[in-house]
Design a protein around this nucleic acid. Structure first.
Lengths: 178, 178
DNA sequence: CCGAGATACCTCGGATCCGATGTATTGAAC
DNA sequence: GTTCAATACATCGGATCCGAGGTATCTCGG
């Protein structure tokens, strides 16, 4: 999730780690703050993998910046992760939202629609907490108001996203096959 | 999050690890599957902390079951985690939903309302991805449909939960102060 | 001129997680 | 009668994460 965000931000142009720290915080920090001890090792890791290159930029700021560029292998990695996302990226909200934030980096509308279709398939499959076998649970079946609320919130959020997904898949399909 | 689920399920009565595995999977497995290599070390860890006790139950099933009981220290730990949740439990959806699923174990309506109020405070504070300073972003300001969708989905889900939270806080307050 | 705060990067230890693998028994299927 | 699946628990290595701490420079106020 963090690596995807780094790749996605670098696709917009080179920056240094400290700026990435701010950008990542603005994207996901509200929900899950990112620590320096997570970010910088991730950068190091990704540089070792050949996805990004580091160039020292002296005199640009108080401390010497190490400007990060997206390498060709990094572009391929980003494309791969967007085009054929990890199953967790489709089920976990945090991951899915970060993926959505960078899905614009896929240039092919058909590929974008395919990703949305997969998320659609995940949302449409019944979650065992909300279903009793095939039968959808009724909120009143939970004795306490908290699980009732959990159920109704999950349904409402799912409905909102489903509507958007279906509409967007349609318009992407129209864009792909004129 | 896993530990909270284990404590919460054991509050309903003793069970063995394999049954917990199913229950946890039904609760959160749809979004984030739990691996045996996560569950059993967690049980071991929690037993070492004195939160749960293990008793062998021979002959009850194919393989010998180790029945888990919630110890008094475990009850206190559960109460503590529900009454004064970790900040991450209030911001991360996955964690918050599991907490909500067990909030019924707090017997005090005032304490329950207080927890909901904290979640309310989190949801009401502006997320930097959706705000430009103090000004809420308009969806059209994002050039691509994906970040537009992200924004509208986040707003819709937030609205749905906020409405439920406010109504439930009200009714809990009425229950606490008659 | 001096200290506080922002910029900028890095490392370390401890904790948790996951995937893979292992062991052993029971019951149903073929 | 033997293979297969389910039950039930456990361990291990590798990866990631977080919090805490460390280093160094620049700028601005007092």
């Amino acid at each position: 999730m963090l690596e995807l965000a780094i790749l996605g931000f670098l696709k917009d142009g080179p920056t240094h780690g400290y700026d990435l720290r701010t950008k990542v915080a603005a994207l996901t920090g509200h929900v899950r703050p990112v620590a320096d001890g997570t970010l910088y090792p991730a950068i190091k890791r990704m540089a070792a993998a050949g996805w990004i290159t580091r160039k020292d930029e002296p005199g640009a700021a108080a401390a010497p910046r190490r400007v990060l560029h997206l390498a060709e292998a990094g572009e391929r990695e980003l494309e791969r992760r967007l085009r054929d996302p990890d199953p967790l990226d489709l089920s976990d909200e945090n991951r899915w939202f970060t993926l959505l934030a960078f899905l614009r980096h896929l240039d092919d509308p058909a590929a974008q629609a395919e990703v949305l279709r997969r998320r659609l398939a995940f949302l449409e499959q019944p979650a065992s907490f909300f279903y009793d076998g095939d039968r959808p649970m009724r909120a009143e079946e939970f004795g306490d108001p908290f699980r009732q609320g959990l159920l109704s919130i999950a349904r409402a959020t799912s409905r909102a996203e489903l509507a958007w997904l279906r509409a967007t898949v349609d318009s992407l399909d129209r864009a792909a096959a004129p």
